[in-house]
Design a protein around this nucleic acid. Sequence first.
DNA 1: AAGTGGTCTAGACCACTCC
DNA 2: GAGTGGTCTAGACCACTTC
Lengths: 252, 252
Amino acid sequence: MSTEPVWPAELFTDLDRTGPIPLYYQISSRLERAIRVGTIPAGARLENEISIGEQLGLSRPTVRRAIQELVDKGLLVRRRGIGTQVVQARVSRPVELTSLHEDLNRSGISPTTRVLSLERMPADAATAQLLNVAVGTEITRIRRLRSADGTPMAVLENMLPPEFADITIEHLEAKGLYEILRARGITIKIANQTIGARRTHGDEHELLDLPKGSPLLTMERVAFDQGGRVIEAGQHCYRPDLYSFSTTLVAR
Amino acid sequence: MSTEPVWPAELFTDLDRTGPIPLYYQISSRLERAIRVGTIPAGARLENEISIGEQLGLSRPTVRRAIQELVDKGLLVRRRGIGTQVVQARVSRPVELTSLHEDLNRSGISPTTRVLSLERMPADAATAQLLNVAVGTEITRIRRLRSADGTPMAVLENMLPPEFADITIEHLEAKGLYEILRARGITIKIANQTIGARRTHGDEHELLDLPKGSPLLTMERVAFDQGGRVIEAGQHCYRPDLYSFSTTLVAR
DNA sequence: AAGTGGTCTAGACCACTCC
DNA sequence: GAGTGGTCTAGACCACTTC
């Protein structure tokens, strides 16, 4: 038995057709909320694209684009000849271009940061290559301890190119690095990151309150702006009992 | 100084306009190859979308869609008022819905699999919830050791729902699990996965040829088909000196 | 002012699935 | 055969960047 297709048109009565927010985005964000809160239940079939367009006074490509956004997020599945359905599986938000600081904030946890060191130094060969600057360029090296509710969670090491030489300890203890960068108009567009594991080195076990030689979850990241300039390179390690990376993968 | 925009139209002379392969896909895949091999260098600016469409005899939306594919992959950056540029950063392929077996194959390494155990058993409460079946349902539990060039790399544990009760050790030692599933017409559409770290447990250190209590990189995954049915649930652990997860993140 | 990408329209034909 | 999504066309207007 197949159920009737659903379309809660009442959610879309007051679309703003003149403002700066794209119509497809207004549709997809309301639809996403309706799915996440359960107004549209898992497994429900949506009405077809043309019919939705007629009800909303929109062309099919616009409706299609809105739906595609949620297909890409893994909330909807489209099948030719069948229709569009809400996915049955729970979907977690993808690994995004955010910092640990923002992740924690979103979880309702108030992160604190202790700056362990903040120094300017000439780039050695490895760092110069990483940041794509000349050897000997004065770069900024930061080492921070990030805690959540008083419990140490991660040791964060970052290298910054010379343009950020004026960042202070006060900045870093008040806000996350990505927040500071964004306030300067820096937009991170692309990042390459690698997740791995290793034992604690040096003082990491003390900082993270772990036995010496414990396993750590590690993440290395190089972040670029729109023009391909390196904005930061980080080598971070996390307490694996307190932190992990979750994501939802969607097949193309 | 800004350079002239480029468009190697000669790469697109023999588009197949009648076959089953979409035009936008033909464009984007050829363009991707040209970028990856360096025919179009990093930082190059592409011609504008309308001009490309005219040269290729295509409408702008089709050209736009082709370009969008590569923007989503992080190979191109678009800026309003400026144009479309090849990203300066190296881009690694994203974490995809593939198995370790396929990852290794793609890297030119021939993986081998030893089945450590293959058993049918009634689902306990935790497994039943994971696989979304009734408690006591006969499920299949697999434990495998995956090696590359003779070196043990990972211990793979999977739970499968009852419909796969006929999978044999011979199947599993010849092919990857996902390959076997695909051969049965099973398409995995969505997966939730979590990456973490922990110490070795039980016999893992022996299997992976590591000291007892060494760090392991772990990945848990629940994979769903189009209809939201659970296809497999896996708990895998990897030797962190031989394996890590790399990906490129692209800001929306 | 000129050029770029961002959005949107109103259609069209096709492939696939189900009955 | 009817209904669905997948692709594609040929335009339009707008916002943003550069000159």
